[in-house]
C-alpha cells in the first residue's frame, strides 16, 4: 500500500493525542470510572489507532511512527480487553472478598488444618514420651521452665511486667505472625512442600506446649492464656497456609486442562483476599495477645478470658461462614 505519510500523520494525529490523553488519565488514577459515552469514545479511538497501525504495518519505512502507534495501542489494549473484575479498595468490598475466598477454597483450609493437627499430634507425643524434646520443640525461653512454676509466678505477680512495652510487644507479635503467614503463602511456590512444613512446624510447637501444660494439670491456665489471641492467630496462620496450598494447587493443576498461567490467573484474587484477611486477623491477635492474654488471674479471671476467646472464635466462624453469602 502506498501511503502519504505526512498527510496520514496530519489527519490521524488528533486521534492519537486524544487516546494518549485518555490513557494518561487512566494510568494516573487506577480507580477512575468512566461514563458510557467515554467508554465508547475510548473504544472508537482504540479501534481507529489499531487500524492506523495495521495500515502502517504495510509501510515498513517508518519504524518510529509504528513504534509509537504500537505503544499507544498496547496501552489501550490493556484497558479495553481487561475482563477480570476489578478489586475495589473499599472496606465493604474487601470484608466480603475475604470470607467468600475462604469458602471457595475451603478444601485447602481443611488440608491446612489437617496438616497442623498432624503436627500437633507429633508435638504432643514427642513431649509426652520424651520430655527432653522440650528444648528442641519449644525454642522460647519463657516456656522452658516447668508449667506449675510459671503459673505460680504469673498468678502471684505484683507488678505489670509489660508495663511501658505493651504496644511495642504487640507490634513485634503482629509483624512476626504476619511474616509467618506470608511465608506460608509464599512457600506455596515450592508446589506446597514449604507450606506443609510451615504448617506442620506450627502444629508441632502448639502440640508440644499443650502437652506440657496439660500434662502438668494447667489446662485452665493454658486455655486462658492461648484462647484470647489464639482464636484469631491460629486460624489466621491456617488461612495463610490455605493461600499457600491454593497457590500450590494452581501450580500443580490436578484435574485441570487449563495452562498454568490460566490456573494462576484464576486464583490471584482469592490469594490476595486470603492473605489480606489473615494479616488483618493477625493485627487484632497481636493487640489481644499483648493487652489481654498476658494478664492472668487474679488480674483477669480465666473464665472471662476463656469466654472472650470462645466469643472471638464464634464471631470469626460466623464471619467466615455467613458474610457475603448471596
Amino acid at each position: 500500500m502506498i501511503l502519504d505519510l505526512a498527510r496520514f500523520t496530519a489527519v490521524e494525529r488528533p486521534y492519537w493525542e486524544e487516546l494518549e490523553s485518555v490513557l494518561g488519565k487512566f494510568e494516573s488514577d487506577p480507580e477512575l470510572r468512566m461514563s458510557l459515552d467515554q467508554v465508547q469514545r475510548l473504544h472508537y479511538l482504540y479501534e481507529r489507532c489499531s487500524a492506523d497501525l495495521a495500515r502502517l504495518d504495510t509501510f515498513s519505512t517508518e519504524p518510529r511512527l509504528r513504534d509509537f502507534l504500537e505503544s499507544l495501542v498496547s496501552r489501550a489494549y490493556s484497558q479495553i480487553h481487561e475482563t477480570r473484575a476489578r478489586l475495589t479498595l473499599r472496606w465493604k468490598a474487601l470484608l466480603r472478598a475475604f470470607p467468600c475466598a475462604f469458602r471457595r477454597r475451603a478444601g485447602a483450609f481443611g488440608l491446612a488444618a489437617g496438616i497442623t493437627v498432624l503436627g500437633v499430634a507429633f508435638g504432643w507425643f514427642a513431649i509426652r514420651y520424651d520430655p527432653q524434646a522440650k528444648a528442641v520443640l519449644m525454642p522460647f525461653p519463657g516456656l522452658m521452665e516447668p508449667p506449675q512454676q510459671r503459673v505460680a509466678k504469673e498468678e502471684s505477680a505484683n507488678s505489670d511486667r509489660l508495663k511501658g512495652v505493651k504496644a511495642t510487644f504487640s507490634a513485634e507479635l503482629m509483624t512476626h505472625n504476619i511474616q509467618v503467614a506470608l511465608l506460608a503463602l509464599a512457600a506455596g511456590i515450592t508446589w506446597g512442600a514449604g507450606t506443609l512444613i510451615v504448617l506442620f512446624y506450627n502444629g508441632v510447637t502448639l502440640g508440644a506446649v499443650a502437652a506440657d501444660y496439660l500434662g502438668a494439670g494447667q489446662g485452665v491456665f493454658l486455655a486462658g492464656w492461648l484462647l484470647p489471641h489464639g482464636s484469631l492467630e491460629i486460624p489466621a496462620i491456617l488461612i495463610g497456609g490455605q493461600a499457600g496450598l491454593v497457590l500450590a494447587g494452581a501450580l500443580i493443576g490436578w484435574n485441570s486442562r487449563e495452562p498454568r498461567n490460566a490456573r494462576l490467573r484464576a486464583v490471584t484474587h482469592d490469594l490476595f483476599a486470603l492473605i489480606g484477611g489473615a494479616a488483618g486477623l493477625l493485627v487484632c491477635a497481636g493487640l489481644v495477645e499483648s493487652f489481654v492474654s498476658q494478664y492472668h488471674q487474679p488480674v483477669l479471671p480465666y473464665s472471662l478470658k476463656i469466654a472472650f476467646g470462645v466469643c472471638e472464635l464464634a464471631a470469626l466462624a460466623a464471619f467466615l461462614t455467613w458474610t457475603g453469602r448471596e
Partner: peptide, 23 residues
C-alpha cells in the same frame, strides 16, 4: 511491570509478585 498478557495490571497481581520476594 506489565501483565503477561498485555492486560491491565491488577492490584492482586502486584501484591502477589511482591509478597513472593522473600522466596
Amino acid at each position: 511491570v506489565i501483565d503477561a498478557h498485555g492486560l491491565r495490571l491488577q492490584l492482586a497481581q502486584i501484591v502477589l509478585r511482591n509478597l513472593l520476594r522473600p522466596i
